[in-house]
Amino acid sequence: MKKLILTAAILGLSAGVAAAETVRMGTEGAYPPYNYIDDNGQVAGFERELGDKLCEMEGLTCTWVTNDWDSIIPNLLSGNYDTIIAGMSITEEREKSIDFTQAYYPPAASAYMSMDPNADLKGGVIAAQTGTIQAAHVAESGATLAEYATLDDTIAAVKNGEADAVFADKDALAPFAGTDGMEFVGDDVPLGKGIGIGLRKSDTALKDKFNDAISKMKADGSLNEMIKKYFGDDALTFN
């Protein structure tokens, strides 16, 4: 273990000497506990800690940038930042336009949350965040899709009765369970192939670096530890 860290540090150092590369990490900042803006106005959360760790391992200088969710892919492609690390599930549709590293979070379940235990999930109004895999799923399921810009807006819409239920990533919804009678309803739906870091297709070198670092963290168990720290002991982990 110690040796591994040492090697990583040396590798990191040498990489740092070769090219003091700055990587701009793009995130949303409104998706706790994955990423959010803390009370000091800094990006915080699971992905912040993970991203900083990965950068440190690969000797990259990383700066954090927030961007609205609905334009997060276009702005990656136009080069405003170099990675998307924002709880973005790996899907085939997204893979057409961008590349992903291997998953750093296992395929997470999506879930419905509502104030009414008998909410009509197949024919009612379901709130989802614009441009998410959950929104695409609702549009296909036959329910009426109501789109909102952020996760907070979807929760607010359910609380004020505008939508019957919200459909989102289960871990992101978990903090709201029990507030104002909000509860998980229906079955969990597995969507996507896990969460990875999104990159431009042309950035293969950067992709290899992150893949390498994620593999190391998976191997030494530190990734699982970090997941448990943010998502609780029952969270899905890599075996």
């Binding site: 959010y36 803006i37 803390d38 009370d39 807006d153 903090p175």
Partner: peptide, 27 residues
């Protein structure tokens, strides 16, 4: 235009804050 102006912060600060934040509050 993606600038962190008063509307951005009003939305961010006003949104429901769960227990993960130091100062939780409703919408």
């Amino acid at each position: 235009l993606g600038i962190e102006d008063i509307v951005y912060w009003a939305r961010e600060l006003g949104a429901t804050k769960s227990q993960i934040y130091a100062f939780p509050h409703p919408d």
